[in-house]
Amino acid sequence: MTTRKASAGLAMTEVPEQVVTTPAAVELMSRLSNKHGELMFHQSGGCCDGSSPMCYPRGEFLVGDGDVLLATLGETPFYMSGSQFEYWKHTQLILDVVPGRGGMFSLENGEGVRFLIRSRVFTDAEIGALRLAGRI
């Protein structure tokens, strides 16, 4: 992370990560990459599997010009459509794992667990830092 001044009148703050992972998510990503090779995520916008984070073998999901690369989680890119990002840009996404069935097109389907997005709203200082960094 880079430390930058958030904006006039606000204290110095680090540019926050837009997507972070829980230990359970890291473990499942490791397990899936051992089975399927390099991975990628695309945050679903509500079609088919609701708004689940979808995990694919890297390159199997075609990323469009309108998709935004929000993070690289280890070596794994995490994308979201640009229009959906407009709604979520003030929010940190937390990639987690819970018991259940994964999305029908997502690699964790059949593992007995599924990826889940939790979130928190960035503070004013964090939003300022993200703006200065050109990330929102």
Rank of each mutant, 00 (worst) to 15 (best):
D49P: 03
G45N: 03
L73I: 06
Q18T: 15
L39S: 06
F41A: 08
A25E: 02
Q18F: 08
P57F: 12
K5I: 15
L70K: 05
Y56F: 11
R114L: 04
P53A: 03
Y56A: 10
S33P: 06
L10T: 12
G45E: 00
A129F: 02
M1T: 13
G112A: 05
M104F: 12
D65Y: 07
E86W: 02
V63D: 03
R58M: 08
A25Y: 05
G134C: 06
R31E: 14
P57D: 08
M104T: 14
D124A: 14
M1E: 09
A129K: 03
G50N: 06
E27G: 11
G45L: 00
R101S: 14
G110N: 06
R131T: 11
I117D: 10
C47E: 14
L73D: 05
S106A: 03
G110T: 07
E14T: 14
L69K: 13
T72E: 12
E60M: 13
M80E: 01
T76K: 06
T13P: 04
G128A: 11
S30R: 11
Q84F: 08
G66M: 01
E108C: 09
F85N: 06
M54A: 13
G110L: 05
S44M: 10
L39H: 03
V98M: 10
I94D: 09
L62Q: 13
K35R: 15
E126F: 01
V20S: 04
R101V: 15
G66S: 10
T76V: 11
G128N: 09
V98C: 10
V15R: 02
H90M: 12
Y87C: 13
R131K: 09
A71H: 01
P77M: 04
R118Q: 14
G37N: 04
L130Y: 01
S119Y: 13
P53M: 00
D65A: 13
M1S: 14
T13K: 07
V121L: 09
S119E: 14
L69S: 11
H42V: 15
S33C: 10
E27W: 04
V68Y: 01
E108R: 00
